[in-house]
Computed example of a mutant assay.
Amino acid sequence: MAKVKHEAAWYPLEPEETVLDGLLRQGVNVPHSCRAGACQSCLMRAVEGTVPPASQVGLKDTLRARNYFLACACKLPADAALEVAGVRELRIPASIVALESLSPDVLSVRLETATPLDYRAGQYVSLVRADGLARSYSLASLPREGTLELHVRLIPGGAMSGWLARDVRPGERVEIQGPAGDCFYVPGQPEAPLLLAGTGTGLAPLYGIVRDALEAGHTGPIHLLHGARDPGGLYLVDRLREWAAWHPNVHYWPSVLAGGGGDIQEGTLEALVLARLPKRPTGWRAFLCGNAEGVLSLRKKLFLAGFSLKDIHADAFLPSAPPAGRVAGAA
């Protein structure tokens, strides 16, 4: 039977059980969220023993070289022994400095970090509470602003979002881990058309990417499409309309599945995006954010429409996942 040593105690793992599931099953508090290897909030470091390559997929070379791995993706061979350490050295102390309601379902959370965070607008970080609860959120802010801005979707019964909306006051201490993600603007080709599409709080990274591109002097057309189930799910609409009025190359289209009218279009975001593409989208760059199913479907459709895969930058949002056998909770 494989076993893991964590903080001086050994914990046996069941066959095919991940390191994360085994530790959680035995009462060890390990920060985690998506349990799919995307958010990276369950990072650990191997002190002794060998981790399978599959548990390091998606990590930066610098992390792999230092024996970091994803506990949610780490299944050890039978009779293997692994000694692990947490990742406190990767976390930055932070404090929540402002909370603002952007809509009935979206909360803006601003944080100050003890040391500057090296990131690009559109990447995501893990927000870690004092008790170890962790959730990943995209960055809507720009590094020059000095504070980090997250857009948090309020979910009924959500552990993190409920705490932020109900209990937190400015000054609350937390930790930040990251950044991660490949959905950000890279200067160069300032004339290239940009397509930005997202649903729900998938607007957060796109909001930062548009501002980053404009500040970098991007002159090509920027097409921003944001989708929601109904008009109440849209937010920052007036601000984005102002951007489109101020910048001739910015085009903003809010859309809903039902209840559209005026300049709020009705239909699926995917259909609206594809309807606006030229027959040959040569040189276009795309940024896609939102629920995993929608992002992966649109990514495939854009590739089939003529986009190069290297020019499609996508970060799918995955909901927090409970341990096996528990009813799914919320973010």
Rank of each mutant, 00 (worst) to 15 (best):
Q40W: 09
P205M: 15
K75S: 06
L234N: 02
G290A: 13
T147H: 15
V174A: 01
V84K: 07
T115C: 00
S136N: 05
C72G: 04
G227S: 11
R169V: 15
G259K: 12
G261F: 14
A165C: 10
D315M: 11
L90G: 11
A94W: 01
C42F: 07
L236A: 03
T115N: 04
D315L: 12
L63G: 09
P187N: 03
A36H: 10
A228I: 09
G157R: 11
Q26D: 07
R211V: 07
V128F: 05
G157Y: 13
W284V: 07
M160I: 10
L309Q: 14
T268K: 09
L43W: 03
A38S: 11
V97Y: 12
S141V: 05
W10I: 02
G220M: 01
G306L: 12
A8H: 02
N67L: 05
A286D: 08
L288Q: 11
M1Y: 01
A204N: 06
L111V: 11
I264V: 15
R211S: 08
H32V: 02
W246E: 13
E145T: 06
G27A: 10
N291A: 15
D238T: 08
A328I: 03
G202P: 12
G217A: 08
P116C: 08
G49D: 05
T282N: 05
R88K: 13
A165Y: 04
R35A: 08
E266L: 10
G325R: 10
D311M: 10
L43D: 02
G232F: 05
V174P: 06
R241L: 05
R110D: 06
R91L: 13
R173H: 11
F69Q: 09
S297K: 15
E112I: 06
A258G: 01
V51E: 01
L117F: 04
I176A: 09
D263R: 05
G122A: 08
Q177T: 14
P323N: 14
E270S: 13
R276W: 08
V97C: 15
T268M: 14
Q123M: 07
E145K: 01
L133H: 12
G27N: 07
L107D: 01
S297W: 09
A331R: 15
Y137H: 14
M160E: 02
S138D: 03
G325S: 10
C74F: 03
E172F: 12
E16P: 00
L154K: 09
C289I: 13
P156C: 15
V19G: 03
D131T: 03
G162R: 06
E7F: 00
L63S: 02
L304P: 00
H251L: 12
L70E: 07
